[in-house]
Amino acid sequence: MTIAITGATGALGSLVVDALLRTEAPETLVAVVRDEAKAAPLAERGVQVRVADYTDPAALRTAFTGVDKVLLVSSPEVGQRFPQHKNVIEAAQAAGVAHLVYTSLTKATTSAHALAPEHKATEELLATSDLATTVLRNNWYHENYAANVDQARETGALVAAAGTGKVAGAARRDYADAAAVVLTTAGHEGKVYELTGDTAYDYDALAAALGEVAGREVRYQPATVDEVRAGLVGAGLDEGTAGFVATLDANIAEGMLAEVDPTLVQLIGRPTTPLVEALKG
């Protein structure tokens, strides 16, 4: 069995490759990457490296030749995700791939979350494809907050418009280990898995975790969406990006990432990584 991982040098994809190498022979793994030089360490470990961008259907078809399973790690390019995912799905079909696993977003087909539409469209396309599929609906990554550590250390504050909303997040390696299990064990075809951490934390708890990592007391300072947007613009972000980031806070305030599901723990066979541990890196 040959398994291809797209985005194999990215933050999530590289962890999936590491997880797969614990049980699979390196020559059975295909790292699909944009930058071959960046993948040199994988090649040194015996992993096949094939170059293909999500925007290049022909290169994707070549990359998937002889592959049995593909992990489609969702594109990082918000706004361009669906056409890029479509290229991957169609290339996998053309290459005769048997099973495609996709990293989606929690409750993607029913959520009003700002990131949901492109995931919803991708899931709908997968449902009409000829591929056997598994959808991994990942909740938030703890590491999404790593960038807050330095600011928290400087200011002692976590300013956000998340209200009293909670996040059922987990570490990237938790989601990566789950993907590796799905790719290497039987019985996952046709399944949609809601993957979350084993607890949900609010922003008071997040501030405390940031404080523990930063080495000082940090307090959560609730703000309005408009206040967060204005602060981000003042820090140099364009209006569109600032508005989008502030909307993600509002989505949390509305409870869109709060629901805890046991499936991730069941797949990986252990508790998910604590927030502080993930923030420490």
Rank of each mutant, 00 (worst) to 15 (best):
E123M: 07
V182G: 07
N144F: 14
S104F: 05
L21T: 04
Q221H: 13
G255V: 00
A43S: 12
A40Q: 09
E36A: 15
D238A: 12
E44V: 11
A200D: 00
D261R: 14
V245L: 13
A230L: 10
V213Q: 07
Q93E: 15
R34K: 09
L125G: 11
R153T: 14
H113W: 12
A31C: 05
A162C: 03
D53M: 09
E24D: 10
D150G: 09
Y141C: 08
R22D: 13
R173L: 08
T247K: 05
L206S: 03
E217D: 15
L60W: 01
G234P: 05
V228Y: 00
V218F: 03
L125E: 12
P262K: 07
Q151P: 08
A253T: 02
E36N: 07
V17F: 03
A170Y: 01
N144G: 09
L20F: 09
A178H: 00
T110Q: 15
A278K: 02
L20P: 07
A92M: 03
G13N: 00
G156P: 13
Q84A: 10
V245T: 05
T273M: 02
A11C: 08
P274N: 05
D150F: 10
Q84R: 09
L100K: 10
A171I: 01
V192W: 00
R173E: 11
Y193Q: 03
A127F: 01
R81D: 08
A146G: 11
W140N: 03
A40C: 04
V67W: 02
V213G: 07
G234T: 07
E194D: 04
T185C: 04
T65A: 15
L105Y: 06
A59E: 13
L131H: 11
Q48G: 10
T273V: 10
A208P: 09
Y220I: 02
T122V: 11
L195P: 03
T196Y: 01
A59M: 11
T6K: 05
G269H: 06
A11K: 14
D261W: 06
D249E: 01
L72S: 15
L248D: 03
T23D: 10
L125I: 11
A58M: 06
A209T: 11
L115Y: 10
V16T: 11
V47T: 12
I5E: 00
R229T: 00
M256V: 06
E143I: 06
A208I: 08
N144S: 11
V228F: 03
T122H: 09
P26L: 07
G7E: 02
P271S: 02
I268G: 00
M256L: 15
S75N: 05
T273W: 02
T2M: 14
M256W: 04
E212A: 14
N138P: 07
T184Q: 03
E194C: 00
T263I: 06
S129Q: 04
L206Y: 03
A19C: 05
L210R: 13
A132P: 07
Q151W: 11
T65G: 13
